[in-house]
Design a binder for these strands. Structure first.
Lengths: 123, 123
DNA sequence: CTGCATCCCCACGGATACTG
DNA sequence: CAGTATCCGTGGGGATGCAG
């Protein structure tokens, strides 16, 4: 997930490409973004929509997405409290390039499957 | 990086989307694919082009990409042996969706940077 | 030159329990 | 309900040395 480097060889953490793909590449971000594409969700709604994520990782990933301005968090001071998460306008714009990757996957998975079987058979 | 699940909640490892994004999401695949976009490379050329990858991870990532049919490996029986890696036609087709993500990154990194500073300042 | 084998570390993330 | 705190296992991946 490293896409840029400084002349001295150190990582350039300011590289926008690296920033993006690091987020796409982590375990839960894309699934959360895809879930939010269907509309706003509350914390517990995520836990139901994504059964195998832990509260710990859900909190952490949502906070990262919020920090990057892709997700907005709204607290309603009811009792018990409820919190709603939704895509920001910026967050919504990543759905299209993400979808393009998903389309590539759907177009290519058959060929990949064949390639894997051939490779493993040759092994 | 999990984008599909079976009805029982278990991971669907056959999900093409998960397959793709797992590869995109690993630490070196995208950088190797981007390097190959410029043309075929030999093993040692990768090590020079990507200074901070280890031989171990280069070997492993190239083999994964080869197994998926995205990269072709050609051995020239010279002495000492040389090996050339190049994108397959299938591998070349992922460059476009990948580029769309890179473009999104370049368009959005300023906004993300602002969002992060605002978030951290509010924290 | 192109790898493979081995050792080892640590951070990612799961499980569980607790709080406002 | 919506988190926080803590503990801990696993495996990704770096470093190094060896082999064909």
């Amino acid at each position: 997930m490293v896409l840029a480097r400084r002349p001295d060889g150190s990582l350039d953490s300011q590289c926008p490409v690296r920033d993006v793909l690091d987020r796409i590449g982590d375990k839960w971000s894309t699934l959360i973004l895809a879930t939010l594409a269907a509309g706003p969700h509350r914390f517990s709604a995520f836990l139901r929509a994504i059964p195998d994520i832990s509260k710990r990782m859900l909190t952490q990933t949502l906070r990262d997405l919020e920090r990057d301005g892709l997700v907005a968090r709204t607290v309603f001071p009811t009792r018990p409290p409820s919190v709603e998460y939704r895509l920001t306008p910026l967050g919504a714009t990543i759905l299209e390039p993400l979808a393009s990757l998903v389309q590539w996957a759907n177009r290519s998975h058959a060929a990949i499957k064949v390639a894997r079987m051939a490779f493993d058979a040759a092994g």
